[in-house]
């Protein structure tokens, strides 16, 4: 830290503020720690155990039910997250670039609809989406959920990345074109590297939202043949009857949240920046 030249009373205020913030953050952290502690300790005796993690490799018996190991749900979640994130990022980059940089008939209409769709909460249209999936014959499949998930997130991420593309100086693109690139090669060799922070930011949002998505699976998949982590955990924790005990659930929740947490700590800074450009974005 550079030399602190602020007067002493200001530093004192800072210390008070830090103290207040610590006091306010402690309850949140305390609740999280106490909850996840359940995963490692036996309820009554408090002895350390890894028994709660058996769902990782073998079926476990909870009450009257046998719960399948987490493997399939984990695989499905990885597939879902990977495909929807990659597609979302690629498609929104292409569209964002065209809207930021190209002249074509219909640009105003498409830009206007992008701006309105970005504000529109797509979850209100799930009933219609359900019907479309049924018509296409992909209701109840992972594929169906993937395409709906991509479509619902596209306006938001296209909007963000479009703003990043608008921010690139036109000269760079022109010089690439003069140097013998055409639109395609200029896009893939030059321009795409200039918006890396934007790409990082939309990929992170895409990843986070896909990984923790529950609603789409709950509404668009009616059977238990295609479990993902969200529905796998949910089955064990229905409001009326908590099937898993908290030890097992905390262990599962920990496995489920680990990638999110890792991602979060790596990318916390971009997440905040993306937050801002995503929302304020004018």
């Amino acid at each position: 830290m550079k030399n602190d030249t602020r007067p002493r009373f200001e530093r004192k205020k800072e210390n008070i503020a830090v103290l207040v913030m610590i006091l306010l953050c402690i309850p949140v952290l305390f609740i999280y720690f106490s909850f996840f502690k359940n995963a490692f300790f036996v309820g009554g005796t408090g002895a350390f155990t890894l028994d709660n993690f058996r769902f990782l490799y073998e079926p476990i018996v909870l009450g009257q039910r046998t719960v399948q190991p987490i493997g399939q749900a984990f695989t499905n979640t990885v597939i879902f997250t990977a495909i929807s994130t990659v597609c979302e990022v690629v498609i929104s980059c292409m569209a964002g670039y065209a809207l930021a940089r190209m002249e074509f008939t219909g640009k105003r209409v498409i830009t206007f609809s992008l701006l309105s769709l970005r504000l529109f909460p797509g979850v209100l249209l799930l009933i219609g989406a359900l019907y479309v999936l049924m018509y296409l014959g992909v209701l109840n499949t992972l594929f169906g959920v993937i395409i709906v998930a991509i479509a619902l997130r596209l306006p938001g991420s296209t909007f963000i990345i479009r703003n990043f593309f608008t921010g690139i100086p036109r000269d760079i693109e022109n010089s690439a074109l003069v140097d013998g690139c055409n639109r395609m090669t200029a896009f893939f060799q030059v321009i795409i590297h200039m918006v890396k922070p934007g790409i990082a930011s939309i990929s992170m949002f895409a990843f986070m939202s896909a990984w923790s998505n529950y609603l789409l699976f709950n509404t668009l998949i009616f059977n238990t043949k295609t479990p993902v982590l969200a529905t796998y955990l949910r089955v064990l924790s229905r409001n009326d009857q908590m099937i898993a005990d908290y030890g097992v659930f905390a262990a599962m929740a920990l496995v489920y949240m680990l990638p999110v947490l890792v991602f979060f700590f790596i990318s916390q800074k971009q997440l905040m920046e993306g937050n801002i450009s995503g929302g304020k974005g004018i």
């Binding site: 690629v90 498609i91 929104s92 292409m94 569209a95 670039y97 065209a98 809207l99 190209m102 002249e103 074509f104 008939t105 640009k107 498409i110 609809s113 769709l117 797509g122 209100l124 249209l125 799930l126 009933i127 219609g128 989406a129 019907y131 479309v132 395409i147 709906v148 991509i150 479509a151 619902l152 596209l154 306006p155 296209t158 639109r183």
Partner: peptide, 26 residues
């Protein structure tokens, strides 16, 4: 136009089939 719509087509297909159409259906 050809060039621009090449870049835009995946976006437009997704939005039309799974956003606009569900909206009309709803």
């Amino acid at each position: 136009n050809m060039q621009a719509y090449f870049f835009l087509s995946p976006f437009l297909i997704f939005i039309t089939v799974l956003y606009i159409l569900p909206a009309i259906l709803t």
